[in-house]
Nucleic acid binder design. Structure first.
Lengths: 223, 223, 223, 223
DNA sequence: GATGAATGAGCGTTCATTCAT
DNA sequence: TATGAATGAACGCTCATTCAT
């Protein structure tokens, strides 16, 4: 919820609180409507009027909650980035920041993120690409943070084992590569016209490939 | 050159031949102009009039050579796909379709494709994404062929060694993963505001990571 | 204060009186805020929301005190017209309704009105022009009254001297002309990007020119 | 005609010349339509669609010939300024740049400009005022040139007689004052709801008033 | 009285596409 | 073939105004 708040929450009357809740609800309703339409028909193929109709509000309301159309997309992908990092990060930590955790986190990406939220996948990987510098800048930030997360995870894993995984930039390149794998595998299989039924098998293959790459490096540097 | 030819080349007069040459030249001029503008300013931020101006032709001329604006983008990315497959494929074959060749092909991707043709990178990976179903369909075809190429290469490498690399779908997933790596590494480093100077080092890191992943799988299945 | 009063002042309780005062205060606050914004950014470039923000009230409050946006402008220029007539008229009378008084009144126009209230100048002469028939009608009334004032002054001056200043319509034309001088001189020098420092010298020149014109007519008709 | 010309006139084919003529015709048709609507209903009360309808072209055509809506108004008042200066200037010169010529020029202003082109009066004096900085800047230029013209005329007249008319800035103030007279007299009588029938009488009164003012100054400085 | 979220008609503007020449 | 003027639907966006609270 990023709409400017007029008052502190604790100094609010009950009716003011209810209005505040309704405001947040509306914001979310518009966001959800936009997510559906952008993912389904594409960002450029969706007009603000369509978003308003889908959310059952006026076009003016969209501009009350968002600066402009691009802002809707930006808020959407920011939320997705946050959700993705949180969910996958949790899983990694739950397994003690080990390579097994890394693997499990990868599987969670497929199981919880891609399968359950295909529209999020479409938005972050397809619809938000090539939409001008403003959106691109936000996209870059999100991917940079995901990269940093993975890089951090790789460092934690190796440190725990007392091993070394090449130099710093190399680790970053590996992190970027891993994101590339996650991105394209889902783009390829999930966003195609006939998505296969056994995406989890595909996810497992992808994860085991990438884990293999990481282990190989560990082998090489710490025989 | 995909404009339908009214006559066979061998039954042409000299002036007809000259016109034919000029026609092809014009087609390419428009394509080049569009490539520059799409990569620089974005597909949606570029109007047909701008393309015509940049190519020093009329807007009508653009519609003589291309069905519509999307068609220009499609021809562009088709050419890029062809060029990429050819150049990288050659390198693989030159080295006897071995894993070393696979590695060299990867390095050629960075050295010859990304560094020398950053605008092609922008077009195929960024500007052609999220531009509606028509473009998406062509993009899918291109990526499918690249996938098939890599899959074929992996099969050739393992067969040569008399080894086995898991089942068929798994190999495809690995091929898709490898494309993902190539895609995002370049997107991340080359298409950012401040592209680093030593992209080849980055490319080497990425290639060695992905080769490692492949070798690990070979190790596991053929110890 | 033109908001309709619900009660007579003398039948009010103390708290009602306080509320009345606050109400008038608010009315004036909004008017002042609007004056600043209209003069600075232009009538059309100023939104009701901006006025409300500047006055630190809600948009609804603006509509409680004023019929609509045009009404704010109308009240503003009505006040300015009143103020101008009062201040300049006073000066004329103070000098015994003579031609010297006429001159002094002209100088007061520059010294007290234009220099001290440049935003009033912008509103009455620039921003209220060309804003539709409703505003135009009010503007006409104001200028008509100013014209009548000047015409009356000219008649008084000549009558006092026992002289004749042409026929009635001619006097009106002269009155209108004089207003034109006062209007454009200020518009030209005060409302330009680089207003000169010595506007009073300019004012003196303008006044002496116009007085000269009046005297010439007196000479001609009463040699 | 300010639309960019593709070719030199002398290197044109007959059909190209005809097209050129049609283009200019169209430009003028749009301009005339806009003039009518702006003068009648006001600049802000006129939409681009209305202009297009009135000119029997598409909205797109308006934007082919003009940068935007404000540009239409600007071209309009620039033309009016040019026309006014030319017509009035001619008259002054025709009478040998004398004070009689100055008077005649003033009468021509009323007889030829105001009476015959009331819509031009409305545009230059009413509708172009208070329409934002862009239009205001152009308006300033026009009025500055008119001022310079009158100032120049006054200097010529006095020099011819071997007389002196105060200092330079004073002359400019008088020029500005004279413009003010011409402006407001027409605004007052012509743009009112019930314009009087004998505007020429009014014009004569205004002119003789202003000539009187000028002569008085000459008397004072050269007794 | 006062608020400010919500409305929705209306606007200026763009631009892919067409077609007479 | 080539032109470029012309189209007009569609779009993003604004903002004066209203009204439930």
């Amino acid at each position: 919820m990023k709409v400017k708040q007029t008052k502190q929450k604790n100094s609010m009357s009950k009716s003011a609180l209810r209005r505040q809740r309704e405001k947040e609800l509306r914001y979310q309703t518009i966001l959800d409507a936009a997510a559906r339409l952008f993912a389904e028909n594409g960002y450029h193929q969706t007009s603000v009027e369509q978003i308003a109709d889908e959310a059952e509000v006026s076009t003016g309301a969209v501009y009350f909650y968002f600066k402009n159309k691009a802002d809707v997309l930006i808020r959407l992908i920011e939320d997705i980035g946050l959700y993705l990092r949180k969910r996958v990060g949790e899983e990694f930590i739950k397994h003690g920041s080990t390579i097994e955790g890394f693997k499990e986190a990868g599987l969670v990406y497929f199981r919880e993120f891609c399968i359950k939220h295909p529209e999020k996948v479409a938005l972050i990987f397809r619809e938000s690409a090539g939409q001008g510098p403003e959106v691109e800048a936000v996209r870059k930030k999100i991917f940079d943070k995901l990269t940093a997360d993975i890089k951090g995870a790789l460092v934690r894993i190796t440190e725990k084992k007392g091993l070394v995984l090449k130099d710093d930039t190399s680790i970053e390149v590996i992190a970027v590569s891993i994101i590339g794998i996650y991105e394209r595998v889902v783009y390829h299989y999930q966003l195609s016209q006939n998505p296969p039924e056994d995406i989890m098998t595909i996810g497992e293959d992808a994860v085991s490939f990438l884990i293999g790459g990481v282990e190989k490096l560990l082998d090489q540097h710490n025989k």
